[in-house]
Design a protein around this nucleic acid. Sequence first.
DNA 1: CTTATTAGTAAGCTATGGCTTACGGAAACG
DNA 2: CGTTTCCGTAAGCCATAGCTTACTAATAAG
Lengths: 112, 112
Amino acid sequence: MAYGNAFVALADPTRRTVFERLRHGPRAVGDVAEGLAVSRPAVSQHLKVLKDARLVTVYRDGRHQFYAIDTNGLSAIRDYLDSFWGEALQAFKTYAEKDQPKRNARRKRARR
Amino acid sequence: MAYGNAFVALADPTRRTVFERLRHGPRAVGDVAEGLAVSRPAVSQHLKVLKDARLVTVYRDGRHQFYAIDTNGLSAIRDYLDSFWGEALQAFKTYAEKDQPKRNARRKRARR
DNA sequence: CTTATTAGTAAGCTATGGCTTACGGAAACG
DNA sequence: CGTTTCCGTAAGCCATAGCTTACTAATAAG
């Protein structure tokens, strides 16, 4: 159930902002915190949550702690979501065929 | 930013359980609540959050409110996550090439 | 060795999210 | 009609998540 922590981690807007700042590559903590509305310790705390959720990884270079995106957390969520696609669509289809031969249900938006 | 609400909705374990109970098809509120550790009104509140996040839809049949999974919320999260895959791997690759010319990167998991 | 930089941790405050019980309202049912 | 079933909403309680300011540790630099 690794996706649990990952969902919690990405549910907070500030933490998501922190996460998104790593989008283009690894950055040091101070660099990530710069310009944000919250303090640097707050950013450290957010990064810890992200790390525990395997959404980021760390490595040290001198006094700098560089954080980078970890795809493990991403794929944990992804796999969880994927497990719904097939069944949800299947259930919808079954329901539509069985119960609604006449009435035309609201049309479903084509996927992607 | 529809994914924001969706992340919040799926971050709570109880709410995730409610959501998962719709996996195999639409169910009425009382049916969803049955056997859960929380009260029926609590389930109603969870369903409201899920609905606002476009993770479920509702339709009425007599006195029964049937809730079903809505793929709109799912794809909102999915799209958000997808926007990281490419860039994160790209960043990793750039880093690997620059600093680690020898080591060969891990192969990417086939998608879909 | 002293000082500066970088970052994690501790303690405490406050807002809020999830729960409960109580109530209200609509649909089936006698 | 009155009653029962089904469900949403309101009000209030309480645990906790996120923030701040302090402090501490580790590395670099002078």
